[in-house]
Design a protein around this nucleic acid. Structure first.
Lengths: 228, 228
DNA sequence: GACCAAGCGGAGATGCCATCTCCACTTCCG
DNA sequence: CGGAAGTGGAGATGGCATCTCCGCTTGGTC
C-alpha cells in the first residue's frame, strides 16, 4: 500500500477518522522507519521501547500510535511481503522454468537473510491471525506453480511440493541466524547445496559460492546466541 | 563416564569428598533422570524448578546438588555425546565410505531430532566453556575424516568440509523444532534431500522417505513456536 | 497572537517468571 | 539414639517487557 517514497504524508487513514496532526504523522513515519530497521536487524522481538527511542520519540507516542506490536509489524512488512509475492509471480514468466525457480529461490533466501523480521513474519508465523497470514497464503500457490512448471520441464525432482519451499527457507534462515556476524552470506553455500539436491539429476556439483567456515569461525558461530 | 546401568550407586565423586548419603545419591539420580527427560523434550531452557518437581524432590535439593544448570547438563549429556563421537569413529570402519558417511549423517540427525537437549548442547553451543565444548571439538575431526574418505572414494562432492556437517544438522534441527507435533520425522525428508545435494553426482533422485506436509499441517507447523 | 485540542515524553506501576536462599523439619547411619 | 546430613518449598531477589498516566508542549485555527 504505502510507497516507501510517497510524497503524500497525510491521508490514507480509515474513512471517518480525521487525519493526524502533522507532527504526529511525522512521528508515525519515524516509528515505522525505526521499526523497519530494528526488525530487520534484531527480529520481531525488539521492544516497543527500543523502537521508540531509536525513532527519537517517547514510548508513550509509540503506544498511542500502534496498539500493539502486531499493528507495527503490519505497517512495516506489508510492502515487503507483497514484493516477494510479486517476485514469485514474475518468476513464472522466466524463459527457463528451472532458472526461474532457482532465481526465485535464491532471491527469497537473500531477502530472508537480510531481513530477520521478514523471515520471522513469513516463516515463523507466530504473529498469526493478521493480514500477514493472508499474505503467506498467497505465496504458497505461486510457489507451487513455479515448482510444477520446473517439474514438467523435467529438471526439478518430482517429489518436492509447495510446502517444502518455506521449510527449506526456514532451514537456511537458521544458518544466517547463527553465522550473522562471522559470515553473513554463508547461506549461499547451503542454498546452492540444496538446489543441487532439488535437481532431477546432475553430473557435476554446482560450485559453492561461499567457502566453508574455518574452525575459528565455526567456534564463534556456535558460541553465539541462545534465544531468539 | 557414568554407565547408565551402573550397579554401584555411590563412589565416583572427586577424591577427598566423602560419598553422598544413600538417600541423597538416590535423589541425585532421580534429578538426572528427570533432567534427561525434560531436556530431551523441551530443551535446555527448562527451569531447575520444573526438573526438581518432575523428579519428585524439592527445589532446594536440586540447587544443593547441582550448582547451576551447566553442571546438570554435563551430568546428563556426557554419555550421549561420547556415544555420538564413538559412532562417528566407528563409521570410519564401514566397508563403503559413502554409506558410512550417509549412515552417520542420518543417525546424527535422528539423535538430534529425538533429543532437543543434545541438539542444543552440541549445535547451539551457548552453554559454552564446559566439558561439552571439548566434546564438540573431538567430533569435528572425526567427521572430517569421514568426509575425506568419502571424497577420496569419489562419491562425496569435493567442496564440503567438516564444519559443514554440524551446520547442516543445525538446519535439520529447525525443521524438527517446528514440525515436532505435526510430523516428528519430517527431518528425514530434508536430510535425504541434502544428502542428494552432497553426492558428487547422481542420475535419479533418492526417493524421499517422508511425504511433504499438506497445507493444513504446514499451517499448524508455522503457527507454533516463538522463542528458544 | 491567543487559545485549546491534540499530541508528547518518560518515570514508574504492573505483571511475569526464573534463580537461588534459608531454616525448621526429617532421615540416615554409626 | 544422637548428631550430622539432607530435605522442601515459601518467598526474597532481580530482571525485563508492557503499558498507563498526567503535567507539559505544540500545531493550527479564528
Amino acid at each position: 500500500m504505502r510507497r516507501r517514497t510517497a510524497p503524500t504524508p497525510p491521508a490514507e487513514s480509515a474513512p471517518g477518522t480525521r487525519p493526524l496532526r502533522a507532527d504526529a504523522e511525522r512521528n508515525r513515519q519515524r516509528l515505522i522507519a525505526a521499526a523497519r530497521e530494528l526488525f530487520a536487524r534484531r527480529g520481531l522481538g525488539v521492544t516497543l521501547d527500543d523502537i521508540a527511542h531509536h525513532a527519537g520519540v517517547g514510548v508513550g507516542t509509540a503506544y498511542r500510535r500502534f496498539a500493539n506490536r502486531e499493528a507495527l509489524v503490519e505497517a512495516v512488512f506489508e510492502d515487503q511481503a507483497q514484493a516477494l509475492i510479486a517476485r514469485a509471480e514474475h518468476a513464472l514468466d522466466h524463459a527457463d522454468p528451472w532458472d526461474g525457480l532457482a532465481e526465485f529461490f535464491q532471491a527469497s533466501a537473500r531477502h530472508f537473510a537480510e531481513d530477520r523480521g521478514l523471515r520471522e513474519v513469513l516463516l515463523h508465523g507466530t504473529h498469526g491471525r493478521t493480514r500477514m497470514a493472508a499474505l503467506r497464503e498467497r505465496l504458497t500457490p505461486a510457489v507451487g506453480a513455479l515448482l510444477v512448471r520446473a517439474q514438467e520441464d523435467g529438471r526439478l525432482r518430482d517429489d518436492v511440493e509447495a510446502t517444502d519451499f518455506p521449510l527449506i527457507q526456514l532451514m537456511l534462515g537458521v544458518v544466517t541466524e547463527h553465522s550473522r556476524e562471522v559470515a553473513p552470506e554463508l547461506w549461499q553455500r547451503y542454498s546452492t547445496l540444496i538446489l543441487d539436491g532439488l535437481r532431477a539429476e546432475r553430473a557435476a556439483p554446482t560450485p559453492l559460492p561461499h567457502r566453508a567456515l574455518d574452525l575459528d569461525e565455526f567456534d564463534q558461530t556456535m558460541a553465539r546466541h541462545h534465544s531468539s
